[in-house]
């Protein structure tokens, strides 16, 4: 297995392979490659959300250490590497910078019988889904893309976006719902 992150070959989900190599082989070379790719992005994410340089680098360390420790919980059927690392960065940021706990659902938490696994239609090609999603996000009308980015990058719940942007709450909700409808199409909602 090649451990080079080969972004030129769209058929090779190499970031996912790197994560699996960390999970299965405690592979430090693979971990270095993941660090090179994700550390600057996690830092950019933290900086956009208002962390200063030092706090952003502490978050990077925390996230990458968690990647090493929890790599065995990564499942490429459920999420791309970027999605999985996004959820770690989001949760660690809430813990460290906002100093709140992040209530999360764990895999064993389902209250429904025989419902441990996600629906079968979601167990396909999470990484390929990401490229469709990227195209949909790129094509969003600017005002819809804006509410999306404010929520993910400015730590604003939708009602705060309304107040701070001087846009009526109903308009924020409408834009958000229109964006969500478009995003859902990337997940094969026509099926």
């Amino acid at each position: 297995m090649s451990l080079q992150a080969d972004s030129n070959d769209p058929t090779v989900p190499s970031l996912e392979r790197l994560l699996l190599a960390v999970a299965q082989g405690r592979d430090q070379q693979a971990f270095r490659a993941l660090f090179q790719h994700f550390a600057p992005r996690v830092k950019g994410y933290a900086r956009k959300l208002g962390a200063d340089d030092g706090a952003a680098e502490e978050l990077v360390q925390d996230v990458m250490l968690t990647v090493w420790q929890r790599a065995d919980t990564f499942d490429p059927d459920l999420a791309s590497a970027a999605t999985w690392i996004y959820t770690i960065a989001r949760n660690r940021r809430i813990d460290r910078i906002r100093q709140e706990r992040r209530p999360e659902l764990h895999p064993d938490d389902s209250m429904l019988d025989g419902d441990g696994a996600p629906p079968p239609d979601h167990q396909v090609q999470a990484a390929q889904e990401a490229s469709r999603l990227r195209a949909v996000i790129g094509d969003l009308p600017p005002e819809q893309a804006e509410v999306l980015r404010l929520a993910y990058y400015e730590d604003k719940v939708h009602s705060e976006i309304s107040v701070e942007q001087g846009i009526p709450l109903g308009t924020v909700k409408t834009r958000l719902r229109l964006a969500l409808v478009r995003l859902r199409r990337a997940f094969g909602e026509e099926a």
Partner: peptide, 11 residues
Amino acid sequence: EACGGVLLEEV
């Protein structure tokens, strides 16, 4: 969350 993953790649 997959949307968050895409945005993390774009940041």
